[in-house]
Simulated scan of single mutants.
Amino acid sequence: MIGVDIVVVSRIEASMRKHGDKFLRRYLSDEEIALVKKPETAAGFWAAKEAVAKALGTGIGETVGFHDITVHKSEKGAPSFTLSPTLVEKFAIVDTSLSIAHDGGFAIAVAAIEVSSK
């Protein structure tokens, strides 16, 4: 399953300026907030979580919330994500992949999720 999302960085930046950490805590864990050094990263994480939820076929809402998805970065900066154990079981998740890019004032993310065929 594939999901994609794109967001205007300035929209996320304006919310960060207006609401600070309260805005970030709405959709990021403390671990994720520690990784955010600039608005492009925050926008990329937003797009990533939306892309993951779309890949699951639900979008962000009652079934999948922002805090059910955690975005990570490898030592080399490559993004990945984990899902809450409840979602892994519910959707029979086998493998995941994530790509995030920023350019021209936009952040885009593509998430791929493999589910068990059983």
Rank of each mutant, 00 (worst) to 15 (best):
F91H: 00
K73A: 15
H72C: 00
G57F: 11
K18L: 12
L87P: 05
P39M: 12
A34R: 15
E31S: 13
G105R: 09
I33Y: 09
V115G: 14
H72R: 10
M16Q: 13
I6R: 02
A42N: 10
G105Q: 02
G59P: 06
A48P: 06
W46C: 01
T96P: 02
M16C: 09
K37T: 08
T70D: 12
L87H: 15
D95N: 10
K37D: 12
M1K: 13
G77R: 12
R17H: 08
M1W: 03
A112N: 04
K37V: 07
V71D: 03
S116L: 13
R25G: 08
W46Y: 09
L87M: 07
A92P: 00
A14Q: 14
D30W: 05
F66E: 03
A51Y: 01
A101P: 05
G20E: 08
I69P: 12
S74W: 13
Y27F: 15
E32D: 02
V110Q: 14
D5K: 00
I60F: 03
T86R: 14
A112H: 07
A109Y: 00
V9W: 00
H19V: 09
L24R: 05
A112I: 15
F66G: 07
A43M: 11
G65N: 06
A107P: 04
P85F: 09
V71I: 12
T86A: 15
Y27L: 15
P39Y: 08
T41K: 14
K54Q: 03
E32T: 01
T86N: 13
R25H: 08
T82K: 12
K54D: 06
I108A: 14
A47W: 04
V52D: 07
T96S: 07
F23L: 00
A109M: 00
S97M: 05
K118H: 10
I108E: 09
S97T: 09
L24I: 03
D21R: 15
T63N: 06
G59R: 03
P39W: 04
F66D: 09
T58A: 13
H72M: 00
G105P: 04
E50D: 11
L83Y: 04
G44Q: 03
M1L: 12
G61Y: 04
F23G: 04
I2G: 06
I93H: 04
A55P: 04
K118D: 02
E32K: 14
K76M: 08
K49C: 11
M1T: 08
A109D: 02
H67T: 11
I33D: 07
L35C: 14
V8D: 00
H67M: 15
K49S: 10
D21I: 05
A107F: 00
H102E: 14
E50R: 10
F45Y: 10
E31M: 02
I69R: 08
F91L: 05
H67S: 06
F91D: 03
M1Y: 12
K18I: 06
K73V: 12
G61Q: 05
E13L: 08
S80D: 11
G59H: 02
K73F: 12
L83F: 11
A101F: 03
D21L: 13
K49E: 01
I113K: 11
D30F: 07
A14P: 08
G104W: 09
